[in-house]
Every structure is written in structure tokens, then in C-alpha cells.
Design a protein around this nucleic acid. Structure first.
Lengths: 240, 240
DNA sequence: CGATCGTTTGACAAGGGTCAAAATGCGTGG
DNA sequence: CCACGCATTTTGACCCTTGTCAAACGATCG
């Protein structure tokens, strides 16, 4: 029921994602595709944005994953959110903005600039919805950390990640690449890597997932959605 | 070191807060003060915004507290954030927006409309910074829930709440009103009310707080800030 | 003066953390 | 093709923080 079928996509993740968020004009789409050709590479672990520093420019992630993270005084890390292909970096509507969090490349990433949008154009609307989605996922993350146990957190996060990747055209049904370590998963879900490992074992035992070679398959998504009461993101009444 | 001294304020919390976020023109300030006179009351527990419903209008909270909350399938509640006097409700930059969360009046509240802002005016900038601050506090909440223990969560949340109230002119130094039950605190901090109670006892025993008749005093803020590595919010390089 | 809501306390259980070590996988160089 | 070194995953034993359940206590209000 939360299933959405998308047409085959042969464009990059940025134009794919944004044109699914808002219907764009031909010109807007080609501006995005044009931007996607201007690729900038960064190596794994590179700091893409530094906490507290001025935000230079708006970029989008085209491939690889990044993460917004915060380091505590005692060295612990909390990953606020993962940045997936098609997501925007540094989009913000006030002047001289400072980055709220560090953004780190999880593996080798490719980025591109984000085309400038005229006020109240389709592009501007797409960016605004993208920001609204980000807020939605923040709310979901707070709820996960505050009220779900380890097993439920994992399920809920997997469902959310599948949904986000699917929006950018990067999930084949219920199967997708999961290019992060269990330790990063732990820092995302507010757990330890040992416990993440045990939780994944339990989910395998229960026949919910298959995880091999960095590819995960959700074997019974309907059941998973039932377990956590998962609802897919909706930010505008003309979504879908 | 995180201390900021503000002049005495004799305006409402909305104009106080926004004019501390951005320097506003005389006209902008009086537009805010004008708006603050158009007061709308709502009783305790009234739903001010319903999750998933279209957002009608932009309002600001003038007195009383509200909370953004999410209810899970099993009836558990997570409070995403508290809405304090001077905060904005329903400010959002895309079309036909849907509320991401329910907002509930915690006690009797008074609201007012939010004046319309010209593009790139001081007011527009103030609203944008207000939204950026909200994002900052979301990040802080995620970090609290993911990586701090009960004692640290309580400290960190108290420091943040004091800072937010002070910005609206509603904290007398390290003392402020705390008009919520321990159960609400529990739903905010991802704990149970029993454990919140024990945590508060421990903090009293340690001489960190005094809590009587809904008024809390932070007895050693410097020490509290040290314990969690608290940093006050900064969203723009021309803050302060 | 009950009734109701919120706070406080106690005994016990359980989920998840900690520490340590073994097993597995993988890229690099010989 | 094998061997080495490093990162990551997996497992076990034990412990601590927080949750659960239940009851007592206190305050406020018609």
C-alpha cells in the first residue's frame, strides 16, 4: 500500500528525484541534467561541510553516500542523517548561513552544483520540498531514537532508506546497496556496533532481511511496515 | 562563556525574539508589535496543527507552551520538540504544505498572526533564521536521544530550554518557569516518567538544580555546560 | 471530602552496553 | 596464486542503565 511504482529512469539521481517531487518544465529538467554533467569527486572520509563554518555553495550528491554527524566531547559520534544520491547539500534560505553539522563523505562521492532557481519556479518549489522532506526525516529519526527498540529502529530505518533510494531511482524493488559499516549504522541508530550485529542476526533469523556483499533485500516489507507502523513521507497535498 | 546579556525587554516574546535574531527596522518592529496585539487564545490540550493536514496559516506563540508530537501505533508518544513563546508555527516555504507533526497546546496558549514579509526584508531574514534555529535544535535533540544518558539528556535539555526562553526574554538569569509534567519531560527525552523523576532527584542531590512550584533554577550552569559540552546555537556568521 | 492528577518510592526484569577475543573478508605486494 | 595486514563482523560472558509494575503519597478542585 505504501508501494509506489516509478517508470524506468535513465537520468541522474538529482533530476530523477526532483522531477518526482514536483513536475518540472522541460527547461528545468535539462538545467538539472546539465548540472549533473559538471561532476566533482571527493574521496572517502573527506569533510564536505564543516560544522560552524560558512556554507559556501549549494551542491547535490550524485553518487556515494555522505553523513551529517556530530562528535561529542567524549569522542562519541551521532550520525544525524545520511545523505543519499539526489540529496541537496547546503540549501538554506537565510544570509551568511553557518553549517549546523559536519558532513562527511562515507565513501568516494561525486557531487554537482545545484542550478539557481527563479523565485516561485518549479525548481524553487522542488528545493523547498526537498528541505521539507529533510525535516520529515528528522522527525522520523527523533521518534526512532526516542521510542523504538533496537529491532524496530533497524526496521524503520531500512524502510526509510529504501524509500529515499527508490525516489532517486536507486532501489530495485526491495533490494538496494548498503555501503556502510555496522559501526556507522550503530552511530546512526544510537546503538553499539555489537548490538547492531546481533539485531541484524535476529532479523535474518526471522526471515525479514537478506544481507550479503553490501546488498540488502527486504524479504517481507509489508510485515516490516506493520511492525513499526511505517508511513511513507508526504510533504505536500499534491504529492503522488 | 556561553552567556549572553540582553537588555531589559518590554515588548512581547515574538518581537523580542525576532529582533534579537536580526536587526529590524522600526517599521518591521512595529508590524510585529501590531501583530502581537491580535491575540487568539486556545485551551490546554487543543490541537493547534494536525499531522498530515494542510497548514492553514502562519502563527506565533505568545504565551503558554505547545509541543510537536508523534503518536506510535502502540500508543507511545514522542515529543519532537517543545514550542515556546516567540516561536513560529507553520512557517514553510513550499506550496500546499502538509504538517509533519501534530502540534498540541500543553497548557492554555495565546497566539497571534505572523506579519507577511517582503522578499529579502529583515523580517524574511528573521523568519529564515528562526527556521534555521529550529533545524539546529532538531540536530541537538537527535544527538541527545542517540548518545546521551538520562542524566546528561536532562542537563542538555534544560540548558537548551533556558537559552531559548532567554532569547524571548522569558528567563531571569538561570531561573525559569517549567510548566510541564514529568511525563511530558519523559516523552521529550525518550525516557519513562519514573526515570525522569529519579534523574531529577539525582540532580537535586548533586546541587545542580532547584525545582519548586513549576520554577526551576540552574544552580551551576557552568558545571552543567561542562558535563555535556553544551554549545549555544549559532546559525549565521553575523549572529551575536 | 472524595476524585483526580501528578510525584515519589520500592522490588524486580530486561534491553542494551562493555570488554575481549576469535573469525572472516579483502586489498596489496611478493 | 599465496601471504600478510588491516578493517569489519561475529561470538561469549558479564554488568549497568533504564523500564515495568505496583502502591503510597501529595496537591488541587469542584
Amino acid at each position: 500500500m505504501n508501494t509506489v511504482q516509478y517508470p524506468a529512469m535513465n537520468t541522474g539521481p538529482l533530476s530523477t528525484r526532483l522531477s518526482r517531487l514536483v513536475s518540472l518544465t522541460r527547461e528545468e529538467k535539462s538545467a538539472l541534467e546539465e548540472a549533473e554533467r559538471d561532476q566533482r569527486r571527493a574521496p572517502s572520509r573527506r569533510e564536505l561541510v564543516a560544522e560552524g563554518q560558512p556554507i559556501r555553495d549549494r551542491r547535490a550528491l550524485l553518487s556515494g553516500w555522505a553523513c551529517r554527524q556530530r562528535i561529542l566531547i567524549d569522542g562519541q559520534r551521532q550520525i544525524i542523517s545520511l545523505v543519499l544520491p539526489g540529496d541537496l547539500l547546503g540549501v538554506c534560505s537565510h544570509s551568511s548561513p553557518l553549517a549546523a553539522t559536519t558532513i562527511l563523505a562515507v565513501n568516494e562521492v561525486v557531487m554537482c552544483p545545484v542550478p539557481h532557481a527563479q523565485a516561485s519556479s518549479g525548481l524553487a518549489e522542488a528545493y523547498a520540498r526537498s528541505v521539507a522532506l529533510e525535516e520529515h526525516y528528522f522527525v522520523a529519526q527523533i521518534t526512532r531514537l526516542g521510542r523504538l527498540n533496537a529491532y524496530e529502529r533497524m526496521i524503520d530505518w531500512l524502510l526509510e532508506t529504501r524509500e529515499r533510494l527508490a525516489l532517486a531511482g536507486l532501489a530495485a524493488g526491495d533490494r538496494f546497496a548498503l555501503p556502510i559499516t555496522q559501526e556507522m549504522l550503530a552511530d546512526t541508530l544510537g546503538l553499539t556496533s555489537v548490538h547492531v550485529n546481533r539485531t541484524l542476526q535476529a532479523m535474518r533469523r526471522d526471515g525479514l532481511i537478506q544481507l550479503r556483499g553490501g546488498i540488502i533485500t527486504l524479504l517481507d516489507r509489508a510485515q516490516m511496515e506493520r511492525l513499526t507502523g511505517y508511513k511513507s513521507a508526504r510533504v505536500s497535498s499534491d504529492d503522488r
